[in-house]
């Protein structure tokens, strides 16, 4: 279904009008909406364009779409060091409610990449998602924390970035450009996510990554799709390179169309 969509609208919402979002209207009377949960940290910036392209693609299929920033991220209120896992989960639910209110759609699909996928998954019940589409979600929190810490250590010595190594203290309590507080580090360090009890598509960038997780999700009834190319999520050389994948947008679009005509 291809329909002419209205212009997307930026604005603030939430109890304190402190969450930033951009609403992409779908076609009038559409049955489904999609909430795009962004990743955290540098992944949010790297995925911004892809999220916008995905939002427009889904809106052109008739879905109302909301992309937004959690408290302490993007254009939302709050300092970067204030990002808090529990608050992010609450923000997902708030954004889902906002999307229902704005679009009139009851059925909301939750989409997220990396930690955005983890948040969509962890907040699925609270946000009452009808379906989840997760792209390389972080399921092993301790492993993710260790990887980000290692990347931060390597950053100190990155000759492509700094003229000379920086003192370790200058990089403390940060992950690749962003201040990290206990409200994010501690919950992530204990995070273990299980497959959800709802219709789910797990999109994986590389078949080699986390095979055990793929099997766990498949065993729980999730569909698993693999991209033909790996995505350089944790690569210092590509830290400021945008993440692009037309293949991902195609896969999500097809999935949404299947759901629409199911």
């Amino acid at each position: 279904m291809s329909t002419r969509t209205e212009r997307d609208e930026p604005g603030y919402f939430g109890p304190g009008q402190d969450l930033f979002g951009i609403y992409h209207p779908g076609c009038l009377g559409g049955r489904q909406a999609a909430l795009l949960c962004p990743p955290l940290g540098q992944d949010l910036i790297r995925c911004h364009r892809l999220y916008r392209q995905l939002a427009r693609a889904l809106a052109s299929l008739g879905l109302a779409v909301l992309r937004f920033d959690y408290h302490g991220t993007g254009d939302s209120a709050g300092a970067t060091g204030e990002v808090d896992w529990s608050r992010c989960l609450a923000d997902v639910a708030t954004a889902a409610g906002q999307l229902r209110l704005r679009s009139g759609c009851e059925q909301v699909i939750g989409f997220g990449a990396r930690l955005g996928g983890s948040l969509a998954l962890a907040a699925a019940d609270r946000a009452q998602f009808a379906e989840l589409i997760l792209w390389d979600p972080v399921l092993d929190g301790p492993g993710h924390v260790a990887a980000l810490d290692a990347l931060q250590s390597a950053l100190r010595l990155d000759g492509n970035r700094f003229v000379a190594p920086r003192p370790a203290a200058a990089l403390a309590d940060q992950w690749q450009g962003f201040a990290i507080g206990d409200g994010l580090r501690q919950p992530l360090a204990g995070l273990r996510l299980d497959p959800p009890r709802r219709r789910t598509l797990l999109v994986c960038s590389s078949a080699a990554d986390g095979n055990a997780d793929h099997h766990r999700f498949a065993a729980a009834g999730a569909e698993v799709a693999a991209l033909s190319q790996p995505t350089p999520w944790q690569d210092l050389a590509h830290l400021e390179t945008a993440i692009q994948s037309h293949e991902l947008i195609d896969i999500v679009g097809r999935r949404v169309q299947e759901a629409t005509y199911a």
Partner: peptide
């Protein structure tokens, strides 16, 4: 560059 208006590492927001 091509970074959206929040700026590199949210520099423009700060």
């Amino acid at each position: 560059g091509l970074v959206h208006h929040i700026g590199p590492f949210r520099l423009h927001v700060e």
